[in-house]
Simulated assay, not measured.
Amino acid sequence: MMMTKREIKKLLRRYTSGAASRSERDAVESWYTSVEYDNRLQVQEYEQAKESVWNNINPHQRSRRRFLRYAGIFIMLCSISLLYYSIYRDNTVDTLAETSEITPGGNRAVLVLGSKDSVNLSQLTTGDIIRHEGIKIEKLSDGTISYETDSTTNDIASINKLIVPRGGQYRIVLSDGSIVSINSESTIEFPSQFTGNERRIKMLGEGYFEVAKNKNKPFIVESKGQKVTVLGTKFNIKAYPNDTHTLTTLLEGKVEVSFSKGNAILLPGDQSIFDGKNIKILSAKTASEISWKDELFVFDSEPLESIMQKIARWYDVDIVFDNRELEKKQFTGTISKHNQIGQVLNLLEMTGKVKFTIRNKTIYIQKNN
């Protein structure tokens, strides 16, 4: 995470006013000897900053530091943002000491076939095939589960269920060729094959859909009191049980979102927000809405409450806020979901807004005083 120009100036002001901690003073003075120019500061601002630091270094240390500078001992150039990371990394390691038992999520899911058999998909290896009621189910090399109509198929379709737990994520190719990515703590119900004049499934949680085109057989997703109808398109639905709103975000094509009182048409870039009674349509932040399927956390001025919900589902942890005001604080940034939880929380701590403590797989969030 890079420091902004404002954050750089704030750190320098803390240094020159005498409010900086010992580790902050050491880092700034090391920066003075090792960094020639940071392009987030104008040249004049940079020179003023250098002069300010020089004037605050103890006189008996100046000759030694000047010697070190010209002797070339500090030869590795680095930005203030990395130095800032080293400052706060030292301050947060102890508070995040219990992260060893918390690991990032991965491809984890259980497939329930009909009303009886269940398969732990993590235990299947690439190329494994399951045959069930005329359907061939295969695990592909990327971990995806693919449904394919067998040559011996009949018109009987059973309802299957894909259950993705906390700390899980999975992708499935349905029998019509539609691809569904399922996020943590989510469930999708679908027929083993689509018979009749429609393709209807049910979902609770979050899923990203790439629907195979079929003008004669609409694809319908039911979720928490709403119904999304499409012919072929790409969209995301977020409908967790405890969420107050159901979000439908459209990437390509056109969809109809209907509910008991009416319906709404979404065009690419639209997002519908359904509160159980009414729908409103806004412009979507599509990159952050679908980043989860690409194994990224992307936050775009996102409230900490929403961020921590995502972290809780992916790392299978519980969250406790010290006060509700913290839930509203907004953050912007991008980080891989494969990072250890300590790295994710450290980056949030580096903003100076919050402080985290982990005990027994519970993250406690406090204001950083």
Rank of each mutant, 00 (worst) to 15 (best):
S23D: 10
K10H: 08
N39I: 11
S21M: 04
A27Y: 02
T33P: 00
S17T: 12
K10A: 12
V35C: 14
E29I: 12
N39D: 15
E24H: 03
L12M: 12
S21H: 05
V35S: 11
N39R: 11
A20K: 01
T33W: 08
R40H: 10
S30K: 11
A27E: 06
L41R: 14
V28D: 03
T33K: 06
R22H: 05
R40M: 12
R22E: 10
E36I: 10
Y15G: 02
D38T: 09
E36F: 12
A20P: 05
Y32H: 08
S30Y: 15
S21L: 03
G18M: 09
W31Q: 03
S17G: 05
T33M: 15
R22S: 10
V28T: 07
E24S: 03
R40P: 09
R40C: 10
E24P: 02
T33Q: 11
G18K: 01
A19R: 08
G18A: 07
V28K: 02
Y37K: 15
R25M: 10
E24M: 07
R22Y: 05
A19D: 11
L12N: 07
S17A: 10
S17Q: 05
A19W: 01
E29C: 13
S30H: 10
R25W: 02
T16E: 01
D26K: 14
G18F: 04
G18C: 05
Y32W: 15
E36V: 14
E36K: 13
